[in-house]
């Protein structure tokens, strides 16, 4: 895959989302580039996590959700009828708010993805497990206890394990839903550093309630309020010179 500087990875067009009769997202239009980090910020309940979950169709799991509009990943509408959701989710992976390792060994957690995608040879799996753990900066900490339960790791280690588990299926896009909200400051720092190292190879979209975090790590930032995308632009500009009064009120802490 060639990495041109400005390549559109995801485009959201005219997206509306309803939970039953309640509308949660209004006319979202948004474009995200490959190889960059986009942050979604906004007060809780503003729809930023909901939008994130439309990008790999995790909202399909909730029966009452209805969606209109389009989400294009690599110029393909993922809400088209012939979309294969399973291979979409392999390309667009997700890290959740709370670390959610499976109750298995560390090794089996990482090998889970490759295995379900048909890789059976032990040698291949070993290689993928090591590579993914190294990428997630976890290898040195766990290499001597790969066969121990992943539930015995600390919260920060568990979250990096979940990132490694995701890298093992080789996605293009990483969706991160407040990945550090359940972590201590040191673990948070480690995950933030990790995103910087990964952003060359992956398009990353991160939902965060922490504005400093968004300012530290993202290239562009989108601000949401009550299901509406108020503003989307380069992070530096959005935080220093917002184009909308509501954005300014939020980032200066007048509400939120």
């Amino acid at each position: 895959m060639t990495m041109t500087a400005v390549q559109e990875k995801i485009r959201v067009q005219n997206l509306n989302l309803f939970y039953g009769d309640n509308q949660a997202l209004y006319d979202i239009d948004l474009s995200m580039q490959a190889g960059s980090i986009t942050a979604f910020i906004g007060p809780s309940g503003c729809g930023k996590s909901t939008l994130l979950r439309t990008l790999n169709r995790m909202n399909d799991l909730i029966p009452s959700v209805k969606i209109t509009g389009e989400v294009l990943v690599d110029n393909q509408n993922i809400y088209a009828d012939d979309t294969d959701v399973v291979s979409l989710r392999k390309r667009v992976g997700m890290v959740f708010q709370r670390p959610n390792p499976f109750p298995m060994s560390i090794y089996d957690n990482i090998a889970y993805g490759p295995r379900i995608h048909g890789i059976k040879r032990k040698r291949d799996l070993d290689e993928i497990v090591e590579k993914s753990l190294r990428q997630a900066a976890l290898w040195e900490e766990v290499k001597d206890r790969l066969n121990k339960s992943a539930m015995g790791l600390s919260g920060g280690q568990q979250q990096r394990l979940c990132i490694a588990r995701l890298l093992a299926v080789d996605p293009d896009v990483l969706l991160m839903d407040e990945p550090t909200s359940a972590l201590d400051p040191i673990s948070t720092l480690k995950v933030e550093e990790l995103t910087q190292e990964l952003k060359d190879k992956y398009s990353i979209i991160i939902v965060t309630h922490n504005m400093q975090q968004a300012a530290r790590i993202s290239d562009t930032t989108a601000f949401f309020l009550n299901g509406v995308m108020v503003e989307h632009g380069e992070t530096d500009k959005l935080f220093t010179n917002p184009g909308d009064q509501r954005t300014e009120d939020y980032i200066t802490g007048r509400f939120g």
């Binding site: 995790m58 992976g93 889970y112």
Partner: peptide, 10 residues
């Protein structure tokens, strides 16, 4: 657990 597994493309 369900979310994690489905999000990996299972």
């Amino acid at each position: 657990y369900r979310e994690a597994s489905l999000a990996l493309g299972a």
